[in-house]
């Protein structure tokens, strides 16, 4: 029994040391991780709505959004959209004008299969934007669906649908909530 206590103690000490080291690393990296995420988000917002100079965060229902302001004028909204893709959740930011027409969008994170679903974010040689996402621009987010304004990627129908449906659903819900 004495030996067992010794073993337990030994393991306990090592676990404690490990936890302390990790807590320290976590505290050091936390602001850097948060800054990296913030920077990425701001870059995405800037790319989606180049004419806006200020993004005011807000929440309505479950939806997180930014009001895109150009000086005192409201240019549109940027919505955080979560879709359920083939491999897991995908996090998208979509920018719309006040009428719901899509001005731009970025996929921040996805877990789709490399080579198939990952094509939703693929940039063709010589182009600057993913070809799948380009077709959303200028269309009304509340009416789009795969087959109606949006063409799915061959071999990645589920992923294409996930992006389209998530945007359609979130924007529709958002516009309704904002009208109230």
């Amino acid at each position: 029994m004495n030996q067992m206590t010794k073993f337990g103690l030994m393991l306990g000490i090592i676990c404690l040391a490990a936890t302390l080291v990790l807590a320290f690393t976590y505290e050091v990296t936390r602001p850097i991780i948060a800054a990296a995420l913030y920077r990425e988000e701001q870059e995405a917002l800037k790319a989606i709505m180049p004419e806006a100079d200020l993004f005011k965060p807000g929440t309505v229902g479950d939806i997180k959004y930014f009001e895109a302001m150009n000086g005192p004028a409201l240019v549109g909204y940027c919505l955080k959209v979560t879709g359920s893709g083939y491999g897991g959740y995908m996090h998208i930011i979509v920018g719309i004008d006040t009428g719901g027409v899509i001005k731009g969008l970025r996929i921040l994170q996805h877990m789709e299969t490399p080579g198939l679903g990952s094509k939703i974010n693929e940039i063709r040689l010589g182009e600057s934007e993913p070809y799948f996402l380009k077709q959303f621009i200028g269309k009304n987010a509340r009416t789009i669906s795969v087959g109606n304004g949006i063409d799915a990627i061959t071999g990645a129908t589920i992923s294409s649908k996930a992006v389209t449906d998530a945007i359609n659903k979130t924007v529709t819900e958002f516009m309704e909530k904002m009208r109230q």
Binding site: C15, A18, T19, L22, T25, Y26
Partner: peptide
């Protein structure tokens, strides 16, 4: 959450 790996494997 950062203890996920450590706690799960233990």
């Amino acid at each position: 959450e950062y203890l996920r790996t450590l706690s799960f494997i233990l």
